[in-house]
Computed example of a mutant assay.
Amino acid sequence: MLPNDCVVPNDSVVPNDCVLPDYNGAALCNLLPSAVAALGLGDSSAALQLPSSRQICVLLIDGLGCAALHEHRADAPVLSSLLAGKHPRAVTTYRDITAGFPSTTGASLASIGTGLPPSQHGLVGYRVLIPERGRLMSLLQWDDSVDPSDWQPHPTIFEQLHAAGVVSAHVASPDFAASGLTRSSFRGANYIGAATPGELIAALAAVFGQDGPRLIFGYYPDLDKTGHGQGVNSPAWRHQLAVTDRMVERLVTELPPDVTLVITGDHGMVDVEPSGKLDLDLAANLLDGVALLGGEARARHVYTAPGAAGDVLAAWRESLSGMAWVVSKAQAIEEQWFGPDMTDVVARRLGDVIAAALPGSALVATVKEERQSALRGMHGSLTTAEQLIPLLTVRV
Rank of each mutant, 00 (worst) to 15 (best):
D62T: 14
L69W: 10
Y23V: 04
D43K: 00
S81I: 05
C18G: 07
S80V: 10
K86Y: 11
S44Q: 15
L28M: 03
S53Y: 02
G25Y: 08
L50M: 12
G42T: 07
V58R: 01
A99P: 00
P3I: 13
P102K: 06
G106Y: 12
P15W: 12
A26W: 01
L79R: 03
S34V: 02
S12G: 09
E71D: 15
S81G: 10
S44V: 12
L28Y: 01
N4P: 03
I61C: 04
A27Q: 01
Q55H: 09
L50K: 02
D17H: 13
D17S: 09
D75V: 09
Y94A: 08
P15M: 13
D96A: 04
L32H: 02
D96R: 03
G63R: 05
L83F: 11
L2K: 06
Y94C: 14
N4E: 15
V8Y: 06
Q55D: 09
V58S: 02
V7E: 15
L32M: 04
L39F: 03
F101N: 01
L82Y: 08
N4K: 10
G42A: 15
S34E: 02
G100R: 00
D17P: 05
L64P: 00
G25L: 05
P9G: 13
C57H: 05
L83C: 13
L41F: 00
S45R: 09
R95P: 03
D96N: 07
E71Q: 12
D96F: 04
N30Y: 00
G106H: 07
L20G: 02
T98P: 00
A67Q: 11
Q49F: 06
A47R: 01
L41M: 07
V14L: 07
P77N: 13
T93C: 14
A84Y: 07
L20Q: 04
C57F: 05
L28K: 00
R54L: 12
G42I: 01
A47H: 01
L59G: 10
L50H: 02
P88E: 14
P88W: 10
S34G: 01
C66Y: 03
L50I: 07
A47M: 04
T105Q: 10
I61W: 05
L39W: 04
R54Y: 05
